Amino acid sequence: MLEGIVEETVRSLPGAAFARRQHAQLLLLHALRLGVRGGAGLRPGWLRLLADARLRLAVEAVHAAPAHPWGLREPAAVAGMSRSHFAQRFREVAGQTPLAYVSHWRVRLARQALRDSDTTVAALGERLGYASESSFSHAFRRVVGTPPSRYRRNAAEGDGR
C-alpha cells in the first residue's frame, strides 16, 4: 500500500490524489486491524470493543438502531451472553456500562445532526429514542455539558464544542 501511495505520487496521473487517499485509508484500516487483533494491550474503549467479536455484534446492533429502547437483555442476547456476564465484560472492555455507551452513541449522533441539519431538538430527541424533548435535553446536557440548543448555537458560531 505504501508503494501504491508512492507510485501515485511519482506518476501523478489523473485521479492520483484520490488514489493516494484510498491507499492511505486502506493502510489505516490494516493498521487498525493489526492493532485490535485480540485486543491485547488496548486500553478500555471503542477499539477494544471492536476487537471483541461478541461485543462487536452488540455494538453493531446498537449503531443500527439507536432509537431502540435498549436494555441489557437484547444486546446480551445478540452477543450470546447472559445479561450479567455481558454487562461485566462490556464494562471491562469499553470502560463504561452498556447503557452509558448507548447514551453516548445517541449524543454523538445528536451532535452531528445539530451541527449539520436544522432538525428541531424535539424531533431529534424522538428520532434517537427519547420519550420527550426534556429527557433528550437532560441526557445531552449530562454528556456534553450544555443543552442541545446552546450546542447548536455554538457550533453555528464556530465554537463547535
Rank of each mutant, 00 (worst) to 15 (best):
M1T: 09
L2M: 06
L2D: 07
E3S: 11
I5W: 01
I5D: 05
I5M: 15
I5S: 02
V6D: 10
E8N: 07
V10Y: 07
L13G: 08
L13K: 13
R20P: 01
R20H: 03
Q22M: 14
Q22H: 07
Q22C: 07
A24I: 10
Q25F: 12
L26S: 09
L27P: 08
L28V: 12
L29I: 11
A31W: 05
A31E: 13
A31I: 11
L32I: 15
L34M: 12
V36I: 15
G38W: 00
A40Y: 11
G41N: 06
G41H: 08
L42K: 05
L42D: 08
G45I: 00
G45M: 00
W46Q: 10
R48W: 00
L49M: 06
A51G: 15
A53K: 12
L55I: 03
L57A: 11
L57Q: 13
A58Q: 03
A58F: 01
V59I: 13
E60K: 14
H63L: 15
A64E: 15
P69Y: 00
W70N: 05
W70G: 04
G71H: 08
L72V: 01
E74P: 03
P75K: 00
A76P: 07
A77C: 10
A77T: 15
V78H: 03
S84L: 05
H85Y: 14
F86V: 03
F86N: 02
R89E: 11
F90V: 00
F90W: 13
R91C: 08
E92N: 06
G95S: 08
Q96R: 13
T97Q: 07
P98G: 02
L99E: 10
V102S: 01
S103C: 14
S103Q: 15
W105E: 09
R108L: 09
L109D: 01
Q112T: 09
Q112R: 13
L114N: 02
R115H: 13
D116H: 12
D116Q: 14
D118V: 07
T119E: 11
T120H: 10
A123W: 09
L124T: 07
R127S: 14
R127W: 08
A131P: 02
A131F: 05
S134L: 08
S135K: 11
S137V: 12
S137F: 04
H138I: 08
A139E: 04
F140G: 01
R141Q: 14
R142H: 13
V143D: 05
V144L: 04
G145C: 07
P147K: 12
P148F: 04
P148W: 04
P148R: 05
S149F: 04
R153T: 06
A156Q: 15
E157L: 15
G158A: 04
R161D: 11
R161Q: 12
